[in-house]
Write a protein that binds this DNA or RNA. Structure first.
Lengths: 210, 210, 210, 210
DNA sequence: GGATAACCGAGACGGTACGTCAAGTCTTACG
DNA sequence: CGTAAGACTTGACGTACCGTCTCGGTTATCC
């Protein structure tokens, strides 16, 4: 375990961490990931470069943490606004799978379009494509939990006979997450609520005549 | 006109271009896109840096051209091996859509797994996520032609009543290209022939009980 | 009174001070003055950085004190070994100036050659050349007392008629301290006992034919 | 010969070199050697840092070259002013050693007092004390040639019987260069023309009664 | 004998400069 | 004129220390 004597996190400056997150998110939006530099983050955050290097191994790691923090805050806010005590952690289950999926997918589209999320998420996704280590972290911490919600919802639908018994939920969910991701990241087509609806219908009933 | 007196492409050195392509593809495989530098390409190709800057605006542009060149060569070779006079430009049409799609998707999986293609394609895809200009070019020159083949094949199937009339082929094809791309780029799950087959089945017949 | 509430020296840790001296002297010998850092001294001495900054204003001040301490110890030791109660504070006065000077200069050469003294003394001398404040302190605390001994001895010789009456002792002594210092610091030539002897002879009798 | 493929000096930018010399000399005077940084030299010279690192291994090496250049210019100017075709390369030889030495030593004192020379020369001397490699270069390129002039002049005097035959000129000259250097570098006393004269007299005729 | 103020070790912090790398531009000499 | 070579300015990299600033934890008097 030849670690470089890891820093003592109890003495960490909370104010610096917040400032770094804010600076990173602001910069990735303003100049893009490629031109975002650690020096610029440090300068904008009013922080020494070393303070960044002490706690993160790379630019992408900073941005990942900043984005995770942003996501947490955002979902906490959302839940608070909805008057809930706890953070919402599931896809709605009205009993009607099609309706529920369309609802969630429309929300997903909205998020993908929101520049506040788009810029950092896109940057992280891109970096993850090429940097396996980051990709796995991105997957594990952000994507996987979301995907699991679909798995749960699909199982519930299966129990009610709304999804065929032989279907593997883990594969099925990719019928809509895959296309959405592709339109988002590769700009293969416009990202609209209508598209989301169509996707749900095609996925549920197939494209072959019934 | 403030154009920088564009270079005269008739006097361009073919040998240099080839060497640059080879160097770029080799380097992206060896050190990855992020650590691939123009200087290294020039050095490895035995070429002056200016020769690269004269003909391409950026690292990603070089790699895109190199990869396009590689793709052309590869498909030419493939066609030649198959004893054909021309390059294959269509998805097989045996009359059975399911079989044909499975065939093509398995081939796609094989390509995605082949490191010779994976490294540069992945790098370009990643860069395209974040660099809109490059992304559009990547889409237009590489993805779109492939997608169009699916559109054609789906229309043919529609005519034969194997795909419901109300289905939009342009959206339908994303039911499999999307998930495949997601597994490839985001490592959401393993990329296998079985997965490709399952995808085709789900897409064709839906996940709801028939 | 904008004094920073000077620290209370009665509560000062003797053990820390000693450890700092030892560390400073060891380091200047091992890595040289330029590469000796306050952090390294603190680490090697097992001391917090603040403990150094509390008591000294700069790296050179630490080293100066460390060296003064070393000198005191050394001359105390020397005197003890000679069975004296007090520290020797004068140049021997056998009545023969030439002999006495040669004796002292040979001892000086020996000290200049001893690496234990050479490393820190050289570092301090160098720093003093460029840092007037330190230079003056070095001069006042180390050089001047030594030089005064020569003045005293020369006056004694003058009284006995061994040195011409019109000679200014304060200048005369530089006839040998100057050359010795130059050979030591600027490596203008080898530092040997023979050289010391020659110097004394030339200084006493001049270089013109008598 | 594991050199890092030394740069091609024929393509070197003369303008950059000059600007670097000027900047280094100006800075050493303004902020002192310790606070003079390579970055500041580069900035002041309007030059990239790499251009400095390409041609010199260290701050001291830059300053040494700058000072050598300054010295050359200065002595060329001096000779030109005196209406000479060539650079003066000897100590005057009027036949009277005492006069000639006093003349030269007074000029030396003037130079040591001139801040334009003092700042860089002092810095180099200090660095040379602690950095043997630089010290040797300083000695070889600057000091030694000066000292050799004294050797020549002394030999001439010896032939004429003005210096005793048994005297070693190489040692004798240190009787005045040593003290001068010590007063200059260690501030052991004031540097004046009178001091220079006294030194010559003591050195020539000794301090013992004749 | 318990409070309390200082020093102490440790080390995080905002900074500056380091020496290196590569970007993109410019100049030189060759074919 | 395109080219190989490579010096140039610029700017970011990741590291090392600077000197300042908490943070607990010992001492070490002083009530």
């Amino acid at each position: 375990m030849a670690q470089k004597t890891a820093p003592d996190s109890t003495r960490r400056s909370e104010r610096s961490r917040r400032a770094i997150y804010d600076a990173a998110l602001a910069l990735v939006g303003e100049v893009g990931y490629g031109k975002m530099t650690i020096e610029a983050i440090a300068a904008r955050a009013g922080v020494g470069k070393q303070t960044i290097y002490r706690w993160w191994p790379s630019k992408s790691a900073v941005l990942l943490d900043a984005f995770l923090d942003l996501s947490e805050q955002a979902s906490a806010e959302l839940s608070a606004k909805a008057g809930l005590d706890e953070v919402a952690t599931a896809i709605p289950d009205t009993g009607d799978l099609e309706t529920d999926l369309k609802y969630v997918l429309r929300a997903t589209v909205d998020e993908m379009i929101n520049p506040k999320f788009d810029a950092p998420a896109r940057a992280l996704a891109a970096e993850g494509v090429v940097n396996e280590q980051l990709g796995r972290e991105f997957l594990e911490k952000l994507l996987e939990p979301q995907l699991q919600l679909y798995v749960d919802r699909l199982r519930s639908a299966q129990e009610r006979g709304q999804v065929a018994a032989h279907i593997d939920p883990r594969v099925a969910l990719e019928l809509w997450t895959g296309p959405l991701a592709q339109r988002w990241l590769q700009r293969v087509g416009p990202l609209t609520h209508e598209y989301a609806d169509t996707l749900v219908e095609y996925a549920l009933y197939g494209i072959a005549p019934r």
